[in-house]
Lab assay of single mutants.
Amino acid sequence: QYKLILNGKTLKGETTTEAVDAATAEKVFKQYANDNGVDGEWTYDDATKTFTVTEKPEVIDASELTPAVTTYKLVINGKTLKGETTTKAVDAETAEKAFKQYANDNGVDGVWTYDDATKTFTVTEMVTEVPGDAPTEPEKPEASIPLVPLTPATPIAKDDAKKDDTKKEDAKKPEAKKDDAKKAETLPTTGEGSNPFFTAAALAVMAGAGALAVASKRKED
């Protein structure tokens, strides 16, 4: 009698068979294992007439167990938060979910874009303008004329002030004479000065007065 010990991944146990020799028993056991989907390494112990079949655990490639991950970057252009961060993800969709959660946790809500070549996400917050509040242009400074500094008044001594007054009066006198001369030139000519009769009478009076003066002097002599 021969014995078979099964150490399979899905089947474990023992069974026996009657055979004329070990070779015949081995054929029977291998057919049995094959029928039950057991495929492994076989050993035989002649002392105990025991066969053992052991399935090795399937070696799984690490790449099959853990999907390949890629590093993705997020650029934040927020109104109050600006910067960059990264995450590792199996695909862009997974990275996007992580980045949007990160942005939401930090109060950033804007327009999202993605560049597959650089594996970069960008979120930009738009500045909202309040309706009716149009931007006002800064007032242009008016052209200013530079002020001319005033010349301080120079105090005048009393004596100098009197001299100035005297000079002013002396300066006025010639001007007054000139005014009188002008008035004389502009006076109208009277009839006496221009009538020949009056001129002859005046000469006769003057001659008579002269003769009287000569006669009076002779009497005195």
Rank of each mutant, 00 (worst) to 15 (best):
T24K: 12
E26S: 00
T15K: 08
E26M: 00
V28F: 10
E18R: 14
T43R: 12
E18Y: 14
T50M: 15
L11C: 05
L6M: 06
L4I: 04
F51H: 02
T48Y: 12
T10R: 06
Y32L: 08
K3S: 08
G37I: 04
Y2G: 02
G8Q: 03
L4F: 07
G37N: 07
D35N: 15
K27W: 02
V28Y: 10
K3Y: 08
N34C: 02
N34F: 02
F51P: 00
T43Y: 09
T54F: 07
D45M: 12
G37D: 07
T10M: 05
I5D: 08
G37S: 07
N7V: 09
L6C: 10
D39S: 15
T15I: 09
E26A: 00
T54R: 09
K12I: 09
I5F: 12
E18W: 14
D21L: 14
V38N: 01
Q1H: 12
I5S: 08
D46T: 14
K12R: 13
Q1I: 12
T16E: 08
Y2Q: 04
L6D: 02
A19W: 06
N7Y: 14
G13E: 05
L11V: 06
K30R: 05
F51D: 00
T15A: 06
T50I: 15
K9A: 09
F29H: 09
G8S: 06
V28N: 13
D35A: 14
F51V: 02
D45V: 12
K12A: 10
T24A: 11
G40Y: 02
A33E: 00
N7S: 09
T15R: 10
E18G: 13
T15S: 07
D39Y: 15
V38E: 02
E26N: 00
V28W: 08
E41P: 08
D46A: 15
T24N: 09
T43M: 11
G13L: 03
Y44S: 02
K49G: 14
A19G: 09
D45L: 12
N7C: 11
E41H: 12
A47Q: 12
A25C: 08
A23T: 15
E41D: 11
L11Q: 04
W42T: 00
F29I: 04
A47N: 12
G40T: 00
A47T: 12
K3H: 08
T16L: 09
L11Y: 03
G37M: 07
D39F: 15
D45E: 10
E26K: 00
T54E: 07
G37T: 07
E41V: 15
T52C: 09
T43F: 10
K3P: 02
Y32N: 04
A47M: 12
E18P: 14
V28S: 12
D35I: 13
E55G: 05
N34G: 02
V20G: 11
Y32W: 08
E18T: 13
D45N: 13
L6I: 15
T48N: 11
T15M: 07
D35R: 15
G40E: 01
T43W: 12
K30G: 00
D35L: 13
L4V: 08
Y2W: 11
K27Y: 02
A22M: 02
G8L: 04
E26C: 01
K9M: 08
V20F: 13
W42N: 00
Y44N: 02
T54V: 08
A33T: 04
D45A: 12
D39E: 08
G40M: 02
V38I: 12
E26Y: 00
F51I: 03
D21M: 11
Q31D: 03
W42C: 01
A33G: 05
D46E: 11
T48R: 12
N36T: 07
T54W: 08
T50A: 09
Y44K: 02
T17F: 09
Y2V: 05
T10H: 06
T43G: 13
K12G: 08
A33I: 03
Y44A: 03
E18N: 14
D39V: 15
F29V: 06
V28T: 12
A25T: 06
D45W: 11
E26W: 00
T16Q: 11
N7A: 10
G13P: 03
G40P: 00
G40Q: 00
V28K: 15
T54D: 07
A23Q: 15
K3I: 10
F29P: 01
A33H: 01
Q31M: 08
T50G: 10
N7R: 13
T50V: 15
A47C: 12
T48A: 11
T16M: 09
G13A: 05
G40C: 03
I5N: 09
A19R: 15
G40F: 03
V38A: 03
T24M: 15
K49Q: 11
K30T: 00
K12V: 11
V20L: 10
Y32C: 05
D46V: 14
G8I: 03
K49S: 11
G13Y: 04
W42I: 00
K30D: 00
T24Y: 11
K49W: 09
Y2S: 05
T24W: 15
T52D: 07
E41Y: 14
A22I: 03
E26I: 00
V20K: 10
T52S: 11
E18V: 14
V20D: 08
N7M: 08
E14V: 14
V53Y: 02
K9H: 11
D39R: 13
L6W: 03
D21P: 10
E26G: 00
D21S: 12
D45P: 02
E18M: 11
E18F: 14
F29T: 03
F51R: 00
E55Q: 06
A33N: 01
T48C: 12
G37A: 10
T16G: 15
Q1T: 13
N36M: 04
N7F: 14
D45T: 14
A23V: 14
E26V: 00
A33D: 00
A23L: 12
E14K: 10
V53C: 12
G13D: 03
T52R: 09
G40D: 01
E55Y: 04
G40V: 02
D46S: 15
A23S: 15
L4D: 00
F51M: 04
T10P: 04
F51G: 01
L4H: 04
K3W: 09
G37C: 07
T54Y: 08
I5G: 11
G8R: 05
T43S: 11
V28D: 05
Q31H: 11
A22P: 10
G8N: 03
T54P: 02
G8C: 07
D45K: 13
K9P: 06
Q1K: 13
A22L: 03
T48V: 11
V20E: 08
N7E: 09
N7P: 02
Q1D: 09
T48G: 11
T17V: 11
Q1A: 14
T24C: 13
D46H: 15
T17N: 08
V53T: 07
L6S: 07
T50H: 15
K30Q: 00
N34E: 01
D46I: 13
A23G: 15
V28R: 15
K49I: 09
A25P: 05
K27M: 03
E18A: 14
Q1W: 13
T16D: 06
D39M: 09
E55W: 05
T52Y: 07
V53I: 05
T48M: 12
K27V: 04
K27P: 03
D21N: 12
D46K: 15
T50Y: 14
T48Q: 12
N34T: 03
K12L: 07
K3F: 08
V53F: 08
V38K: 02
I5V: 10
E26T: 00
Q1G: 12
E41K: 14
I5R: 11
G13M: 03
F51T: 01
G37P: 01
T10G: 05
T17G: 07
K12C: 11
I5M: 09
T54G: 07
A23Y: 15
A19C: 09
E55V: 05
N34Y: 02
L4E: 01
T50W: 15
Q31C: 08
A22T: 06
Y32D: 02
K9T: 11
T10A: 06
L11K: 04
V38W: 01
